[in-house]
Design a protein around this nucleic acid. Sequence first.
DNA 1: GTGAATGCAAACATTTTGCAGTAAG
DNA 2: CTTACTGCAAAATGTTTGCATTCAC
Lengths: 156, 156
Amino acid sequence: MCTSTFAGPWQHLEQGERVHIFAAMHARGLHLTAQREAILEAIFGCPGHICAEHILGAVLDRRPTLRMNKTTVYRALNLLVDMRLVREHRVGAGPAQYEPASRGPHTHLICRACGQSWNLDGDVVQGFTASLRARDGFEAQLESYPIFGLCSTCRG
Amino acid sequence: MCTSTFAGPWQHLEQGERVHIFAAMHARGLHLTAQREAILEAIFGCPGHICAEHILGAVLDRRPTLRMNKTTVYRALNLLVDMRLVREHRVGAGPAQYEPASRGPHTHLICRACGQSWNLDGDVVQGFTASLRARDGFEAQLESYPIFGLCSTCRG
DNA sequence: GTGAATGCAAACATTTTGCAGTAAG
DNA sequence: CTTACTGCAAAATGTTTGCATTCAC
């Protein structure tokens, strides 16, 4: 079951982004349909992560004339993740969460006890990923998953 | 759907471990039943991670006289995770994976391209978690989930 | 016009729940 | 003898698939 919903103003895709996505799809012989555009707008218009159910809800709310179905949402999401236009986070129980890949790398700290989350800026993460790269040649993609643990308050 | 199965020799719980678990359960007014003991043996006897379906399979295979049901497996797993005797890993699609909490912290690196995984020893991780602790007071539990990225081969 | 995209219903995989019966302490 | 535990069947959740129809290009 999903919990939070983003009810902010409806965002249209920024023009450059739209062009880039259209080109990427065209190159694969795929269509940028009204449904897919609405799904993209829901994802790009949400400041955080959003799940399939909420994407469906947002589109139905804000584009009542557009036909839309959960199957279409899931199919579009798989496509967009495949094309690396959207990042997927599957962590813990509950539905997968999605966000624009263009948002750039950022890591979340999540407290297992209180559930709060914090953004972790680049410095510390970069030090860690740099040492993994140096040691093992492994390019860690820490932005794909939040880091779980206990926050300073809950440790006490 | 599960893929790999561990078909190694049946392990009985090490005596000290059994005593410790029994005490922990007793302290909560819970029973260490034959079913729960068999489930624990399946988890502790598996060198890697094991999922609910395979625990059920292992117990049915090796203790044909013992009645056992997937509901019992899931209920036992929730209990054991809750008691922090067993660690749960939910990552990507597919069923949750379980392993003894006593196995100590260790982090896995998993390559998104080829799917291979490597154990990451403590040093590098400890440096990272130490800086998070110092900076944010956050106690990261990196052993709870793998770090995804690209291995040296697949980066090329 | 043609191949790709959609909606619907149904299947699927994983996990949880209600309830009546069983067994551990 | 009490309270926890179990099995069964059924539900809940999140996601995918088959197929006939519709639409973008």
